[in-house]
Simulated scan of single mutants.
Amino acid sequence: MAQLEGKPLDGKVAVVTGAGRGIGARTAVRLANDGADVAVIDINEESTRDTVAEIEALGRRAIGVACDVSDEASVTAAAERVQNELGAIGVLVNNAGVLRDNLLFKMSASDWDTVLGVHLRGAFLWSRAAQAQMVPNKWGKIVNLSSTSALGNRGQANYSAAKAGMQGFTKSLAIELGPFGINVNAVAPGFIVTDMTRATAERTHTDFEAMQKAAAEHIPVRRVGRPEDIANVVSFLVSEDASYVSGQVIYVAGGPKA
């Protein structure tokens, strides 16, 4: 298929972590539709294959890269591979995440460390690696995935802390990196239908369809979200239309939050 032309991200290289499925996969494909070549990052390369194939079908370059986002050496090696095979990173979406839900008195230190490690440490390591490639070009876009859980959620002290931390991290990076032409923002999804929310239903022994219906009744727009809803907002934030938007947390939850 011929290369697409006249797209907002033509000539740019995007990295999306946790892009094997769900929000990450839809975001990676949306950025490819916007013209970017995309590095699809996930814990193992096998998980990236469907997303890579979908991007390549659009006529864009894509590579699947196995990376433990919480491991410094793994992130460094992955960022170097992206630069060598696709070019300098221009867009970074820190989406990788895990759940280890439990009430505080049942939560293990390992459950805490794993969630904070993947979400916050992972965002830190990838942002640090990406900005080193962005600064010389005086252009870059970083979007961090927060959550409405940043406002507090029973049984998610670790996840809520990580997602609240992501917001402070975003605002600090916006201040530091703004002078170098880099915009940094966060998106905070509400209820989105993904494998992760399905796992929450299973953990609580709740029918997933019933969970969605109950959630929709409390959402002003009367529906739950789809991964594409998040991808659409990320697409805007990494475009030049949002060049004067930085340090912001956009709640994408079907109604007002925070």
Results as ranks from 00 to 15, higher is better:
3 Q>V: 02
7 K>V: 10
8 P>N: 04
10 D>H: 03
15 V>Y: 14
16 V>L: 10
17 T>C: 08
17 T>K: 04
18 G>Q: 01
20 G>K: 08
22 G>D: 03
22 G>K: 09
24 G>Y: 12
28 A>L: 06
28 A>D: 04
31 L>C: 10
33 N>R: 15
33 N>H: 15
39 A>S: 11
40 V>N: 11
40 V>D: 08
45 E>S: 13
51 T>Y: 04
52 V>Q: 03
55 I>A: 02
57 A>T: 00
62 A>N: 00
63 I>L: 13
64 G>P: 15
65 V>C: 07
66 A>T: 12
68 D>L: 11
68 D>P: 01
70 S>G: 15
78 A>C: 12
80 E>C: 13
83 Q>N: 07
84 N>C: 03
89 I>G: 01
89 I>Q: 00
90 G>V: 14
93 V>G: 13
98 V>G: 05
101 D>A: 05
102 N>M: 11
104 L>Y: 15
105 F>N: 10
106 K>A: 14
111 D>H: 14
113 D>L: 09
114 T>Y: 00
114 T>K: 09
121 R>Y: 05
122 G>H: 04
130 A>I: 11
130 A>E: 07
134 M>H: 01
138 K>W: 10
138 K>V: 09
140 G>N: 02
142 I>T: 02
142 I>H: 07
143 V>C: 08
144 N>M: 02
144 N>G: 08
144 N>A: 05
145 L>M: 15
146 S>H: 03
146 S>R: 07
155 G>T: 14
159 Y>T: 01
162 A>W: 11
163 K>N: 04
166 M>H: 03
173 L>R: 01
177 L>W: 12
180 F>C: 00
182 I>G: 06
183 N>M: 02
184 V>Q: 09
189 P>T: 01
195 D>L: 09
202 E>S: 10
205 H>V: 05
206 T>P: 10
208 F>L: 00
212 Q>S: 09
214 A>W: 08
215 A>P: 05
217 E>S: 14
218 H>C: 02
219 I>Q: 04
223 R>G: 10
238 V>S: 13
238 V>H: 11
243 S>R: 11
243 S>Y: 02
245 V>E: 06
247 G>W: 09
248 Q>I: 04
249 V>S: 02
251 Y>R: 01
253 A>P: 05
253 A>M: 00
256 P>A: 05
